[in-house]
Each structure stands twice: as structure tokens, then as C-alpha cells.
Design a protein around this nucleic acid. Structure first.
Lengths: 232, 232
DNA sequence: TTTTGCTTGGGACATATGTCCTTTTGCTCC
DNA sequence: GGAGCAAAAGGACATATGTCCCAAGCAAAA
């Protein structure tokens, strides 16, 4: 992690995401820029965090490692998502590992500043609340989807989500994974089983597979399979 | 739903939960008391909510109905939990059904008052944030637990949680269920399968079953099975 | 080029879990 | 006490998913 002291860059980043003027002046004053390199960890379980981060550039991968050593990929996050909100604002321990996928840029607010300044700024607090609410919403949708539907349905739903790129481009990005093993983790299944489902979809003419890449052929058919359970 | 105009009762309820003086005066002024009868719905999917509710007495059951007609019990909530936070504060649609288990009492804040008054009160907003963060935390723990461990482990974890009543009584209550069918739903499995696991636990001497009731005999053994995955 | 290693693709088998049905048990109401 | 009912207990079978392997393709390193 490197602190970037470049007011002009901070300004332009805030403009880009329409954050300028959105919070109180005092809150803006305590914001700083931080950069993480590819593969660098923003936090991992049991860490104690000193900053609340707002991702403004790049992409992070959030996963959880469980006592039995297994891990589950929770999601990918793209700009304007919060890291450390639960920990800093809810007095909770870190449970998830957050890793920078490429190089990424964050606006950070130190713990002390959060308590003194931002914690008294209603606009900032409402911003946090809105993000928390959306996170919770996504999270519980995915959770119930995971437990009530077979991998077949979830994978169809996943494909529809990353393919239909008209609206909601953001949420889609949040779930995008490259390698098949990662998709398997995201869906909470084994690579082997995902593979079976892929083979089945190919047999049904829903998708096509060529040396590793997948091509959606029948989005309507996939939608039928997902039957209204879209990741959302 | 009935509005209860009884300032004295409101006062005593707020005292009981140490809410008095915690928020700004204006915020306190827009709080009202509401009562729901046994089995009454606080909200259900696609409803539009007009209030943010804080449960102060009773117990509510939160579940989600999915497009395929299946439903999953998400959790039971006990006093001082929020209903409608995601919807009112995150501009989201209602996705979960919330049902009053017995008779229950809420402090409610109307949508308009929320925007005008409470939404400008940092103390109130921090209260909301803290609750959202905890909800999210519980939710994602349970979600990964559900997907990565077999029912056997989850049920052991559940039993440990509701049995170890020393510390954390609140969180435990949140997950307590009476009938076995309800436990099955909570664990996201079928009653049949839960039954199998129970039979297995009995055979291993971990629990005892007598006309419907279960008695924990070997909490240490259950803890070993749960292996650090406690619902938390 | 060979080697090494990661990713893909898939066979064989074991296990976890779901669905459907029947039987039993304990209760309440007549 | 018997009828009727809801919850509980469990048998039989089907399906979903995991684990363990092995083999092939491709790309970077040696």
C-alpha cells in the first residue's frame, strides 16, 4: 500500500465518480488516495483495519477462507464500492480477504478521522448506508439462490448476468470471473461439477465451448433455465 | 398493524433498550409505536414500505419466497433489530417477507420523517449503520457456511449456538426455531434429511431425542463437529 | 526443443441431499 | 375411548455434487 499525495488526482477521481461536493467539506478534507499493487491484500481475516476504503479504480476480489481451509469467492467489486465498512463502522473483526486484482486506487479515511469528522457528516453516513444496504441485498439474494437452486440454475443465471450487458453493467461486472475454476468457486461448487454442467449446456445447444472460452448461443434458453432467479 | 398513541409506553420502551437520548431530539419526536398481531405480515415481497421499523418487543420471522415457490427461512429477529432499513434507506424493493411470530411492538418512523429529520441526525445514522453492518456480517457468515459445509456440520453448529447460552444470548435467540421443520428450513435443507442427521447424532450419543424434543448430551462433541464454524 | 506447470476435459465412484410415501405418535375434540 | 389431525420418524429410490484420477493442450521457462 502506498499513500499518494496528489490533490489534483484526488480531485479528478472524485469528479469522475461524482463525489465532489457530495459530502461535507470537513469530510472531503480527511480523504486521501492509496494505491495497491496487483495481488496485494487490502485486508485478510483477523487483521485490524485502520482505514475505510472507497474503491475508485481497479478491481478487487473478495473471498473468505474457512476453518477447514476451503475458500469461497464472494464477489468481485468494482469502483465505488466500500472496503472495511463493516469493520470500521460496525466494530467487527475482518472476516473476508480482499485482494487487489490489478493495480487499484482507493480513497481512504483513517479510523480517527472517521470518528471525528466523517461520522458527523449526514451526507457521508447516508452514502455509507446506501452502499451497505445494496451489499446486504445482493448478498442475501445470492445466498438464498445458492442454497435453493442447483448449480445448473445458478450457472445459467450467472451466464445471463454477464451476457446481458444492456442495463446494470455495474452489477454484472461485480460477478464477472475469467477462469472456469474461478467461476466454480464463485458458484460455490467444484470445478469438476461445473464442467459437467457446461457439457450438458453444450449438448443442449445453449452454449458453445472452444479451447477454454464459452460462447452463449441461446440466451433465451438460459433465461428460461434461470427462471427469474437472476443474480440481483 | 395498529398505531399506538401512548407517549408513556414509548418512553418506557425506549428506556428499556437504552435508546432514550441516544438520538437527536427531532428524531425522537418523529418516532411512533406500532403493534402487529400474531402471524401478521410486516411486509412481503414487492410491497412498498412506508415505515422504517425498529423491533422493540416480540419476535419476527424473516423468510424469502423464490420464483419457484420454494421458501427459505432466513432468520428470526429479536428486539432491537431493524426492518425496512434496506428498502427505506437503500431505495430497494422489498424481497423478504417479515412476519410477526407472536404479538410484537415496533418503533416506526415514516418515510417522510426519515428523509426530513432522522436522515440528518448523525447519531441515528450511525445506529443504522451499525445494525446494517452486523446484519451483513451475520448474513455472509451463514451464507458461506451454508455453501461450504454439509448439513451435519451446520446442524452441529446450530445446536451449539442455541445451547451455549452463557454469552451472546441475543445472537442465539436470533436463530432459535421450535419445530424441526423450521430448523430444516433455517438450515436450508429438507426435513427428511435433517431427520437423518438427527438419527446419526443420536447413534453417536451426541444428542437424545424424546417425543419431538432434542436434548444435547455431548456439547463438546458437537463443537468438534462444528469445528470452528459457529454461526456468528 | 524439452520441460514444467497451469488450465481444460472428463471417467469412475462415493457421498450428500431431495422426493415420495408409509407408519407411528401424541393431542385435541367430540 | 375413538376420530381426526399435525408433527415426527423413517424406508426406498433418484439426483446433485464431491473426490480422486488421468490425459490432453497450451504457454512460459529452461
Amino acid at each position: 500500500m502506498r499513500t499518494i499525495r496528489d490533490p489534483a488526482l484526488l480531485r479528478s477521481v472524485m469528479d469522475e465518480h461524482r463525489l465532489s461536493g457530495r459530502f461535507g467539506e470537513k469530510t472531503e478534507a480527511v480523504m486521501e488516495l492509496y494505491r495497491f499493487d496487483k495481488g496485494e491484500m487490502i485486508c485478510r481475516a483477523e487483521d485490524s483495519l485502520d482505514h475505510l476504503f472507497i474503491l475508485v479504480k481497479g478491481k478487487v476480489k473478495i473471498y473468505r477462507v474457512l476453518p477447514n481451509g476451503k475458500s469461497i469467492l464472494l464477489r468481485f467489486n468494482n469502483p465505488l464500492s466500500l472496503i472495511g465498512d463493516m469493520e470500521m463502522l460496525g466494530d467487527l473483526k475482518v472476516h473476508n480477504t480482499v485482494e487487489s486484482v490489478g493495480e487499484s486506487l482507493f480513497i481512504g479515511i483513517k479510523r480517527q478521522a472517521l470518528a471525528d469528522t466523517a461520522g458527523e457528516d449526514p451526507a457521508f453516513l447516508r452514502f455509507i448506508i446506501k452502499h451497505l444496504a445494496r451489499k446486504l441485498n445482493t448478498n442475501s439474494s445470492v445466498a438464498s439462490l445458492n442454497i435453493l437452486y442447483p448449480v445448473e440454475t445458478r450457472f445459467a443465471s450467472y451466464l445471463v448476468a454477464i451476457t446481458a450487458d444492456e442495463h446494470d453493467r455495474e452489477r454484472i461486472e461485480e460477478l464477472k470471473a475469467s477462469k472456469l475454476t474461478e467461476i466454480a468457486e464463485l458458484l460455490g461448487t467444484s470445478y469438476r461439477h461445473l464442467n459437467r454442467v457446461i457439457a450438458q449446456f453444450v449438448a443442449q445447444g445453449l452454449i458453445e465451448r472452444t479451447r477454454g472460452a464459452l460462447y452463449v448461443k441461446d440466451i433465451a434458453g438460459l433465461q428460461r433455465l434461470a427462471s427469474g432467479t437472476l443474480y440481483s
